[in-house]
């Protein structure tokens, strides 16, 4: 396998425990963009502590799926329950879910008019009502964790892509989320910077965070995921534990996909 980002380090699995508690329950979920049926009858149950990698060709609906989990996209049929809260049109529920679920975007989406520190303290101060001093201490703690505390007073435009993505992860963590969603976090990065972001994500997984990652980093999937979901044409085609998924894919579609992304 010629994955340039194959994870070579030893993974500490002592905290990676999947509990019986259900974190996210998606039942018979359907979504349309106009007349286009993007998500078709999706059923996923995520238990607390699971690390799930979602992959598939572009346009398969994988980003849309995780964006439905914090209601950046609205689903039209079926049921999504996050942390025991069902996502409906009730704005209060949506805000509650969003403050419990962290999200990292492909293009980082840091706030360019605020410093790194302000990016990290904004939501805790205004949503969680944490005092400013305390929020800053928490922010510095997480910035140290992603290894860029020295950039705290710079603006996002002065940082490299990899650094910005790590800040974005720290910003999400400052809300002390119970679930983290990653929407192609490394797709917009230079090859040299992908590793630093993946390392941060691996550390997060080692601490037992419940994670859903849309990514094409198969090395990451093999190292830390406990389940891989393969999607095509808005539906889940195959899901399995990583070793089986990569070595023994069942459906032809999966085989084709894997041969294409791993073949080069």
């Amino acid at each position: 396998m010629s994955d340039p980002h194959a994870v070579t380090r030893e993974i500490d699995r002592s905290h990676m425990q999947v509990s019986d508690e259900v974190a996210i329950q998606i039942t018979n979920m359907n979504k349309w963009y106009g007349a286009f049926h993007v998500l078709r009858d999706v059923n996923v149950t995520v238990n607390r502590g699971e690390r799930i990698v979602i992959c598939g060709p572009s346009g398969s609906g994988k980003s849309t799926l995780i964006r439905c989990i914090n209601r950046l996209e609205e689903h039209q049929q079926g049921k999504i329950v996050v942390d025991g809260i069902e996502l409906t049109n009730d704005l209060k529920n949506i805000d509650k879910v969003r403050s419990e679920v962290g999200m990292v975007f492909q293009h980082f989406n840091l706030f360019p008019h605020l410093t790194i520190l302000e990016n990290c303290t904004l939501a805790p101060i205004w949503v969680r009502k944490v005092p400013k001093k305390e929020a800053e201490a928490t922010a510095m703690h997480f910035l140290e964790k992603v290894k860029i505390p020295e950039q705290a007073n710079k603006y996002p435009g002065q940082l490299s892509g990899g650094q910005q993505q790590r800040v974005a992860i720290a910003r999400s963590l400052c809300m002390k989320p119970r679930i983290m969603l990653f929407d192609e976090p490394t797709s917009a990065l230079d090859p040299e910077m992908i590793k630093e972001v993946l390392d941060t994500m691996i550390e997060l997984a080692e601490e037992g965070m419940t994670m859903l990652c849309v990514t094409h980093e198969m090395g990451f999937a093999q190292a830390v995921a406990n389940r891989v979901i393969f999607m095509d044409q808005g539906q889940i085609v195959e899901q399995n534990e990583p070793k089986e998924f990569f070595n023994n894919p069942q459906s032809d579609r999966t085989k084709l996909f894997l041969s294409q992304i791993l073949g080069h």
Binding site: N70, K96, R98, G102, H107, L122, W126, V127
Partner: peptide, 27 residues
């Protein structure tokens, strides 16, 4: 403003007015 700014504000749990005041309007 790129859509990502709205989405990031939403994803952090900021409500409409806070997002407007702190993220969207300044930019």
């Amino acid at each position: 403003l790129p859509r990502g700014q709205y989405e990031a504000a939403d994803a952090l749990g900021l409500d409409y007015w806070k997002a407007q005041r702190l993220i969207i309007m300044p930019q």
